[in-house]
């Protein structure tokens, strides 16, 4: 692969918010972007530490998100507690396997892939690995793009709670699982936002 010149080498800095290119004033505090006013950083501040912290919190919360009740359906005769997985199974049994697949992908595959992808990125960056940098950057772009779709099940529960509240035919209530799951999605989004993909490309000496 041919050699690319980086902004760091040229003493340039691209503003993370508006893309404006600034001439970097040496070491120390960089001040603000003269176009949009954003506080400038060479790399996202404490990128790896923040990403680790948010990712670990998300992984811990993923356990109650899956084991606690997502929603409770009650009618005169009985009451059923659904978790994410039992909700997927319900859709499957009902015959709408396409939607079962969509919910399974959004609520199970996306968060787990995101955990694995972020762990891979964090570990390879920490080790200064030069393994497939374009591929790892692409991996980062993919998790940035798909992460918010995991909020799907939280919205489904919110809608069902709003719709199903009858005296006789029963009602749907949201459980702690929905809260935990919503928090997992927010935390994984914050984790991937705090990761700086430029660290994948930086020479190993730069970080820590």
């Amino acid at each position: 692969m041919s050699r690319f010149v980086t902004a760091a080498e040229l003493g340039l800095l691209g503003c993370h918010r508006c893309g404006h290119v600034l001439k970097r004033p040496g070491q120390g505090a960089l001040g603000h972007c003269d176009r949009c006013g954003a506080t400038l950083h060479r790399r996202k501040p404490q990128s790896l530490e923040r990403c680790w912290a948010l990712l670990i919190a998300a992984m811990i919360l993923y356990v109650p998100a899956n084991t606690m009740t997502m929603m409770r359906t009650t009618n005169l005769l009985n009451s059923t507690d659904d978790t994410i997985i039992s909700g997927v199974i319900y859709l499957w049994v009902q015959g709408s396997w396409e939607l079962a697949a969509i919910v399974f992908i959004a609520s199970v595959m996306v968060p787990i892939s995101k955990f694995i992808a972020l762990l891979t990125l964090l570990i390879t960056v920490r080790r200064g690995s030069d393994w497939d940098r374009p591929g790892r950057t692409r991996l980062y772009r993919i998790i940035e793009k798909i992460g918010h779709w995991s909020m799907l099940d939280v919205f489904v529960v919110a809608l069902l709670v709003a719709l199903v509240h009858f005296d006789v035919f029963g009602r749907v209530e949201a459980g702690g699982g929905a809260v935990a799951f919503g928090a997992v999605v927010v935390l994984t989004m914050l984790a991937s936002m705090s990761f700086d993909p430029r660290l994948i490309w930086d020479p190993p000496a730069r970080h820590d």
Binding site: V5, G14, G19, T137, Y140
Partner: peptide, 16 residues
């Protein structure tokens, strides 16, 4: 101030 002559990749820091 005019539109930048340079553009910096926000994901790998390459300059064009």
């Amino acid at each position: 101030m005019s539109v930048d002559r340079w553009v910096v990749c926000e994901q790998c820091d390459a300059v064009y």
